[in-house]
């Protein structure tokens, strides 16, 4: 049973990665939701497999809960800590996009100044104006703010998340960039 919980998690994650590559799920604007939806479905298969296998072995009444938690952590973390982060950094990281733009400017033989970089990024889809619009939209999608007549209103959920984040930063004595 423990072997299934450990190697099942790793094996199903490998299948997930292969499906992401075959169906090019990391491409496109809505790559996060596409990847997460597939990951959720495969996680469901993992859970059903675990209980189904325990039932088959007649060990359902002594189901190894802690091993199941560890296996689930392995399956979830392989995606959210490694793959999803790599895709996120490669695709959406502002700092990486800035570095890519500096490289593109340098390749064109231009001495990169802040002004030239700013102009270059503004001329592209991934400029900081675009990023700002994108993040404002994200705040709405997460239901942290509502837009009424071009004004952003903080929702109770947004207030809660803001307080939680600020409390954590205060405990650790950290300041936002």
């Amino acid at each position: 049973m423990e072997n299934y919980l450990l190697f099942g998690a790793i094996g199903l994650f490998i299948i997930f990665v292969l499906l992401v590559l075959i169906f090019k799920l990391a491409a496109g604007e809505d790559c996060y939701s596409k990847m997460n939806n597939l990951h959720k479905k495969i996680f469901l298969i993992y859970i059903l497999g675990a209980f189904g296998y325990a039932f088959y072995l007649g060990e359902l009444n002594q189901f190894p809960i802690i091993s199941f938690v560890v296996g689930s952590f392995i399956f979830l973390s392989l995606h959210y800590v490694y793959l999803f982060s790599l895709v996120g950094i490669s695709k959406k990281s502002i700092s990486i996009n800035i570095l890519v733009n500096i490289k593109e400017l340098s390749t064109d033989g231009v001495n990169t100044s802040v002004k030239k970089l700013s102009e270059f990024m503004s001329s592209k889809e991934n400029g900081l104006d675009y990023i700002r619009e994108n993040r404002l939209k994200q705040m709405e999608l997460l239901n942290w703010a509502e837009v009424k007549e071009s004004q952003y209103h903080l929702t109770p959920k947004g207030r809660l998340f803001n307080r939680m984040g600020n409390t954590v930063l205060k405990i650790w004595n950290l300041k936002r960039l």
């Binding site: 994200q138 705040m139 071009s150 952003y152 209103h153 903080l154 207030r159 803001n162 600020n166 936002r176």
Partner: peptide, 19 residues
């Protein structure tokens, strides 16, 4: 960036900011 925007909104007593 989203959390920074949320903080800016949260710092407002009214909880409202124009775009």
């Amino acid at each position: 960036v989203t959390l920074k925007m949320l903080e800016a909104l949260g710092n407002e007593v009214s909880g409202v900011l124009p775009k």
